[in-house]
Computed example of a mutant assay.
Amino acid sequence: MLDVVTLGETMVMMNPVEAGSLKYIYDYKKQLGGAESNFAIGLARLGHQVGWFSKLGKDPHGEYIKSFIRGEGVDTSQVKFTSKAPTGLYFKERRELGESNVYYYRHDSAASRMKPEDLSEDYIAQAKYLHLTGITPALSDSCHKTILEAIEIANKNNVKVSLDPNLRLKLWSKERMREVMLDLFKQADIVMPGIEEGEILLGTDDPEEIADQILDLGAEIVIVKLGAEGALVANKEAKEEVAGYSVERVVDSIGAGDGFAAGFISGQLRGANIVDSTKLANAVGAFATTVIGDVEGLPTKEEVEVFTGQKEAITR
């Protein structure tokens, strides 16, 4: 039995060994990145049973991705391979000033060819949660249909749906993005937008207004991410702002949102209330920023307990 099932594209990531413009970077470290697999690995490290599904190219990059994710304790039994399209690739550009940039080489990738027929109802039905992001429906029409089919399967089998918008403006127009994402908000039980995502999709950067609008669309729980300040968590009964955790030096912020989502769902799986689940989400998200790479900084349950002061670190 799995606690959570998720699906989406994971790509090989070329991560520069130093910060600066890619025009002047010559050395890279090969890693991987994908919002859904980041989330899956984060949950697995926190002690949960997670399954991740995707379609990969029948190439060395696809084999590397599957092996790495499986090695992190995530079930990959439903992953499919195709020789008709390659595994996606992207380059990360890290800056000391400002946000990191990402350059994608994913057009017509293997994952963009996912289709509803690739899904196993039995696989999704065994889980407590189905976790999705707004990246997958942006990849292709067939990926969008696959997401909708997965939600239908989840609803049919009483599986809760969590959604992290994870907007990728490079993949589609704002008009199409709003149309699809607002429809997904209506179908999700838990929605985890950031402030900027709320402004793009809903026309407001007020956390309470963002939460209210998404709750009105049908979600049961909304967590609005506020960056270093923490998050606002809300349901129909109450709203509460939950303070974040300070980090002395942010090394790499990409992947922190996926860690946040993993932390919140972990709390829910353990029976915590929405405020305590948000505290855990803040801790995991903050911890993830301390290491270069999308998943390398995601903590174990014990590391979170030490980080938040619940347990004393024993180093010698």
Rank of each mutant, 00 (worst) to 15 (best):
R94L: 14
S77Y: 13
R45V: 15
D59H: 03
I147N: 06
I124C: 06
A111E: 13
G51C: 06
G42P: 06
S67K: 08
K80F: 15
A110K: 00
S67D: 07
G134C: 05
Y129H: 07
S112K: 02
H131F: 07
D59W: 09
A44I: 02
K80W: 13
V79T: 11
R70S: 15
T133D: 07
G47P: 06
E117D: 14
G71E: 02
Y90R: 06
M114R: 05
G73S: 05
A154P: 01
E99W: 14
R94G: 13
E99D: 12
T136R: 07
I41Y: 12
Y129N: 05
P137L: 04
A44H: 11
H107E: 08
V102A: 03
T136L: 01
L130R: 00
G73W: 06
D59K: 02
S112E: 08
L130H: 07
A40D: 01
L46R: 07
L119V: 11
E96I: 15
Y123S: 05
M114P: 08
A154W: 06
I147R: 09
L132P: 00
L89P: 04
N38V: 09
G73P: 01
L130T: 00
F81M: 12
L119P: 14
A138R: 01
S54E: 02
S67V: 05
K145T: 13
Q49M: 10
G42A: 03
S67A: 10
E93K: 09
Y129W: 04
G47D: 03
M114A: 02
P60A: 09
K58A: 13
A150P: 10
L130F: 00
K128P: 03
A154L: 01
I41T: 09
K92D: 12
L97F: 15
H61V: 05
S120V: 00
L46I: 05
G134R: 00
I151E: 07
K84S: 07
F68A: 04
S120H: 04
D108Q: 09
A127H: 01
D75W: 04
H48T: 09
P137A: 00
S67Q: 14
Y103V: 04
